[in-house]
Design a protein around this nucleic acid. Structure first.
Length: 618
RNA sequence: GGUCCCGUAGCGUAGUGGCUUAACGCGCCUGCCUGUCACGCAGGAGAUCGCCGGUUCGAAUCCGGUCGGGACCGCCA
């Protein structure tokens, strides 16, 4: 080894020892008779000293050495002079008196400094990610991610799971998300796709008698990315045979509790709270509620009917509802503040925001004239409003009310600092409906994915639905009433995983495909290999797939919940890599080999793009 | 596909129509400094204000377009 110790591990226990260290120059402080040099490696920093009078050769060797040079340094560990200790540094009571200096590599001036509190534009950070990763917070994030993966493997191994790899070159089985295509030379005109998830693979492993499977699995979706959604992401993919929903929930929450203990040093009380889907929507307007603060929804539809406020009354009369949330201490919000909030809510289709402010001596509301004092007092009573609070109401169809108030609630929760830092609120969402009516297509979609098993009691509803006189949009349509064994795990307002008990019988699976508008010949073409497998004694099975990226982001408590910070080499939201310049144009020769042709317009764009070089390294 | 926001030395920012010859901090370069650790001191270099076009006597500043980035809606089982 080129080194005997790591910088950050040195302490008073090493005093008197000769050590060799390797690392990067954090900073050089030339004092004309001494040079102080902070050497940094993964473990931390240590101050090294070269004294001109004691060792002129070493002092001279440090001449010209600059930040981020990669060095091998030899010296003896000494206690610092009395009074010269640095309590801000873990190694601040000692320093290394240098006897040898070897430059392993020089460094150009960096595009940004290697400091913890970096303000640099994220695009520049990603372009020079190999430098960004030298920063302590990024190293912490990588280590936390490693720790979580390692502990996950340990735990699942202990539970009898086998880690099995599944193909990345897969068959196109369109289920929802667009797939990335991978054309290959050996089969011109044909294409593999990258899996959206190993969903079908892992079910086939259950047919294959694996019984307990997991995989730290890369998944790919060719869809618009988001702050909490990548084009390529990682799931802790889990599947088990001969289990009920409770079995999957049990092993999952014990895994999460194990991670919380091992990674965060916190005890997670089990079992985790469970909320039905309907209750989550009713109380929070969301299937991934952030329960770290209150501000729950209050239904005031009945009061709205009796008021003289037509907007409210009409909303209820046309099958909608009126719901309210109470923002603590916001009674002094100005007309402008409320207008800003109203604008936020309009993008979800809400037409307005009615507010009632409970002041010291008066009630302020732009719609006060439509309500009696008693009615307003009743609204405050139900919302448990205190003096100084502001009640915000939205009247509309249930999904508009849910979306807008959910957004307002989260926005205000953040603005009003209602969230105690360091809180981790896990909860299950259960009893999710199997199907969801899609007003655009006029038929039902699978709420989660089409491989979920309906609750056995609701199996007759599948058949009834085909002959039901009710229109598809009717909430009492048999298919709208089918319950499934479908569950989501939620942490602090993020869905960090979802799973289900799967369909393992061909006849039921085919029926589900028909309901979501996939005719038998089509489902045979796409999923035939899986349906065939179900005919050979496929065991009942189910599983879950916690998203590793979101979990790491939340457990690492990354600032601003930026998920890119917990990935070594992330892409931008628009799906490009500023470091490598990927994706790059496809050249004509490869297209020919693959039996593909570019549309003229795309070819012209590519011609231009061919002249664009990836950003140079300096 | 849509809405909103951002783009000024290597980095972070200031500058929203006329002494701006674009300013400040960090970084960088040169010199000095015997215990520094956000070292200090003195001096210096570094920007066609993302790009294209328009309005104007005059544009970093106003307008239109475009590119890049971000947040969100749609989308993402």
């Amino acid at each position: 080894m080129k080194r005997t110790h790591s910088c950050g591990t040195l302490s008073e226990a090493n005093i008197g020892q000769e050590v060799t260290l390797c690392g990067w120059v954090n900073v050089v402080r030339d004092q004309s008779h001494q040079t102080f040099l902070d050497l940094r490696d993964r473990s931390g920093l240590v101050q090294c000293v070269a004294d001109r009078d004691n060792n002129a050769a070493v002092y001279a060797a440090l001449e010209g050495i600059k930040a981020e040079y990669c060095l091998q340094l030899t010296g003896s560990v000494q206690a610092r002079l009395p009074g010269k200790e640095n309590p801000k540094l873990a190694t601040g009571s000692i320093e290394v008196q240098l006897s040898g200096v070897e430059v392993l590599n020089t460094s150009k001036t960096l595009p940004f400094e290697i400091v913890d509190d970096l303000k640099t534009d994220e695009n520049v950070r990603i372009q020079y990610r190999y430098l960004d990763l030298r920063r302590r917070p990024m190293q912490y994030n990588l280590e936390t991610r490693h720790r979580i993966v390692k502990k996950t493997r340990d735990f699942l191994d202990g539970e009898g799971f086998w880690e099995v790899e599944t193909p990345l070159l897969w068959k196109s089985t369109p289920e929802g998300a667009k797939e990335f295509m991978v054309p290959a030379t050996a089969q011109p005109g044909k294409s593999f796709v990258l899996p959206q998830s190993p969903q079908i693979s892992k079910q086939l492993l259950m047919v294959g008698g694996v019984e307990k499977y997991f995989q730290i699995a890369r998944c790919f979706r060719d869809e618009a990315a988001r702050a909490d959604r990548f084009l390529e992401f990682t799931q802790i993919d889990i599947e088990m045979s001969f289990v009920s929903q409770d079995d999957v929930l049990d092993v999952t929450e014990r895994l999460l509790a194990y991670l919380m203990r091992e990674v965060k040093g916190q005890e997670l009380p089990l079992p985790l709270p469970r909320l039905t889907y309907a209750e989550a929507i009713r109380r929070y307007g969301s299937d991934k509620p952030d329960t770290r603060f209150g501000m729950e929804f209050v239904d005031i539809s009945d009061l709205a009917v009796g008021s003289g406020f037509k907007v409210f009354a009409n909303a209820v009369a046309s099958g909608g509802q009126v719901k309210a949330i109470c923002a603590p201490g916001c009674a002094d919000y100005s007309r402008k503040d409320i207008e800003d909030l109203t604008n936020l809510v309009k993008r979800f289709g809400a037409r307005g925001l009615a507010t009632f402010a409970l002041g010291e001596s008066e009630i302020k509301s732009q719609v006060a004239k439509f309500f009696s004092d008693e009615q307003m007092q009743e609204i405050f009573r139900r919302c448990e409003a205190k003096t100084g609070d502001l009640v915000l109401c939205v009247a509309d169809h249930s999904n508009v009310v849910a979306q807008s108030l959910d957004f307002l609630r989260r926005e205000l929760g953040q603005r009003l600092n209602l969230i105690e830092p360091g809180t981790f609120n896990f909860l299950w969402i259960v009893d999710t409906p199997m199907f969801e009516f899609n007003p655009e297509t006029g038929h039902f979609d699978a709420m989660h994915h089409p491989f979920c098993l309906p609750n056995p009691e609701d199996l007759p509803l599948l058949e009834e639905g085909f002959t039901s006189p009710l229109p598809h949009g009717d909430p009492m349509h048999p298919w709208a009433r089918v319950r499934s064994w479908l569950y989501d795990i939620v942490l602090n307002g993020y869905e960090i995983g979802s799973g289900s008990i799967r369909c393992h019988r061909r006849d039921i699976q085919e029926k589900i495909f028909r309901i979501i508008g996939l005719p038998p010949e089509e489902s045979q073409r796409r999923f035939g290999f899986m349906l065939d497998a179900f005919e050979y004694g496929a065991p009942p099975h189910g599983g879950i797939a916690p998203g590793l990226d979101r979990l790491v982001m939340l457990l690492a408590e990354v600032p601003d919940n930026n998920m890119r910070d917990i990935v070594a080499f992330p892409k931008t939201t628009s799906g490009t890599d500023p470091m490598s310049g990927a994706p790059t144009p496809i050249d004509e020769k490869r297209l020919h080999e693959l039996g593909l042709a570019m549309l003229p317009e795309e070819a012209a764009n590519n011609e231009q793009a061919n002249h664009v070089q990836p950003a140079p390294a300096s």
